[in-house]
């Protein structure tokens, strides 16, 4: 007997970001396929995640700067345990730590058919994965 559920897309079951006024611009830019970090208009420091004041000079005069999306693989880990049910189907999945050309460090996922070739120090570049109507996640592939 045909089932109605076979035609229903399963809802996205992984944790979603919880944007705040401070972080909303990051997610808005990601949705447009652009990766951004916070930059201080006063001293030029670039940082991520967002901070209410510049951690270098304490200025509140900050903006979001779109970055190249290029970086270096600092390290990575392969999860064999799912802390959320939504990740079970992906096991094992790779989380990477990337240092952007512009300086800041961020965790993301290392994806792509050759992700298993990842080595510390290898160049990576950003890709964007639209996971819901409102959320796009920046991820990385080997460059």
């Amino acid at each position: 007997m045909p089932s109605d559920s076979s035609t229903t897309a399963s809802p996205y079951a992984k944790p979603l970001p919880k944007p705040t006024p401070l972080t909303q611009p990051f997610w808005d830019l990601a949705r447009e396929g652009r990766l951004a970090v916070q930059a201080c208009r006063s001293c030029g420091d670039r940082h991520f995640p967002a901070s209410p004041v510049c951690p270098e000079c304490l200025s509140t005069d900050q903006e979001w700067q779109v970055v190249s999306g290029r970086g270096t693989l600092v390290s990575w880990v392969e999860f064999h345990r799912a802390y959320w049910d939504g990740f079970k189907a992906d096991l094992p999945y790779r989380v990477c730590l990337v240092q952007l050309e512009e300086g800041p460090l961020l965790y993301s996922n290392l994806v792509g058919a050759d992700a298993g070739e990842g080595r510390v120090g290898r160049p990576v570049s950003v890709v964007f994965e639209k996971v819901t109507e409102t959320v796009t996640l920046p991820k990385f592939v080997l460059a």
Partner: peptide, 19 residues
Amino acid sequence: IWDPWGMTSPGAAHAMMFQ
């Protein structure tokens, strides 16, 4: 803040360091 990428637990951070 890294939950959307599945990055969680102190063990994973230590695994990153050991890698």
